[in-house]
Design a protein around this nucleic acid. Structure first.
Lengths: 126, 126
DNA sequence: TCCTTGTTTCGACGGTTGTCGATACAGAGG
DNA sequence: CCTCTGTATCGACAACCGTCGAAACAAGGA
């Protein structure tokens, strides 16, 4: 129906995937179903080689951001495919995109990765 | 052809998914294609709510291990399905299984989770 | 030996995902 | 206005994935 004028900025997905409950580890307690669904979305987004490389390319690039035009050339894939992968990462809140003039720049959401990292950071064995 | 007598212990998957190159972060350098494929396997294994809960159930259980019989009851899923998910986690080297008498016990591979956690642990922004 | 219970494998089914080409949208510059 | 380039969406297709029931395998007990 209504067309959005800022297709990049829109929070296409379900938005924040439970960012509040930040400090529970996998080992502390059995991980409820809802939270598991939220987390699985993030891991699934990272479960593709191309998306993992995109994430790394953006994160390691000068200034912590990268233009889409810099990313498409790296892979032997079509433009739409790269755009699709970026959308998946966006919907998992792992990256954010911003249009500046002609080009669109993406940067990683650092808190997101930190959050996941902490989840996997196991306390010493009981 | 030849049937294996210990179906649980066999390293069904491609084995170690690049466990040696442990200390590179996502942000340090662009992440080569091969390594991306290896890591994607691990994240894909964690990209399912059921598998995530299985991982958490095993990790948080008494003694750091859990019997399959304790896991099947938790979910509204058939036995074969649970077994399938455990196999995926096993092939990603996230858990290991051991048969003791009638029952099979699984435990998490802690170094594996630590390894992934370190990968996502970003250095402070440039 | 046969039976029973726990676990895995097999074969099949529907739903999801990665990929593409075609198309539409956004902005810059004639 | 029109055109050109960069990016996103759409529609379709094959491949993959989660699930099940049926069947096979493993170990223990009658």
């Amino acid at each position: 129906m209504s067309k959005k004028s800022l297709p990049v900025v829109d929070v296409t997905g379900p938005g924040d995937v439970g960012a509040d409950e930040c400090c529970s580890s996998l080992t502390s307690e059995p991980l409820g179903e809802e939270r598991a669904v939220e987390l699985a979305r993030v891991f699934k987004a990272m479960g593709d080689p191309v998306r993992l490389r995109l994430l790394s390319l953006i994160a390691s690039n000068q200034g912590g951001e990268a233009c889409v035009c810099e990313l498409t050339g790296v892979f032997d894939l079509s433009g739409p495919t790269i755009s699709h992968h970026l959308k998946v990462l966006r919907e998992a809140a792992l990256i954010t995109g911003e249009r500046r003039g002609t080009w669109v720049y993406y940067r990683v959401v650092r808190e997101r990765l930190t959050q996941v990292s902490m989840l996997l950071d196991l306390a010493p064995a009981t």
